[in-house]
């Protein structure tokens, strides 16, 4: 087993371990925003590690274009998707500590500030993982 094989093994198991950690965090974290935060970890670092491991296993130059495509797509799309999801989570816990700021431009409609968002928020809090 050469050095390249050992490095590929470390990278592949590291990526898989990040996916497992994200699964634990998504199940255990108490809040929707923290769960979205945990979900972006294997999307970026895990896929970068797995791509490095696959590149070390294949060992060619021709495949690097597709690897760069995968990594750049994850770098650009994962923060955008997480931002949209966390913004919705903030709107849903409006009026609570750490909730939506009216300066964000979201959740300022007085029809939305009443019971419905509070109901959703208590559902989120009472779950507890």
């Amino acid at each position: 087993m050469s050095v390249i094989d050992i490095a590929a093994t470390v990278a592949l198991i590291g990526g898989a371990a990040l996916s497992f950690i994200a699964g634990v965090a998504v199940l255990r974290f108490p809040d929707a925003a923290t769960r979205v935060h945990a979900a972006t970890k294997p999307q970026v670092l895990g896929i970068v590690l797995l791509t490095i491991g696959l590149g070390l296993r294949l060992g060619g130059i021709a495949i690097i274009g597709e690897f760069v495509l995968i990594v750049l797509l994850q770098f650009f799309t994962a923060p955008v998707a997480a931002h949209l999801a966390v913004r919705q989570a903030l709107v849903r816990r409006e009026g609570q500590p750490g909730g939506a700021d009216p300066e964000l431009g979201v959740g300022v409609d007085p029809e939305l500030g009443g019971g419905s968002s509070r109901q959703v928020d208590t559902d989120v809090r009472s779950d507890g993982g």
């Binding site: 996916s19 994200a22 769960r35 979900a39 999307q43 849903r92």
Partner: peptide, 11 residues
């Protein structure tokens, strides 16, 4: 909440 399900789907 649907946000939690979105996070789980991402994972």
């Amino acid at each position: 909440s649907p946000i939690d399900r979105t996070a789980a789907l991402d994972v």
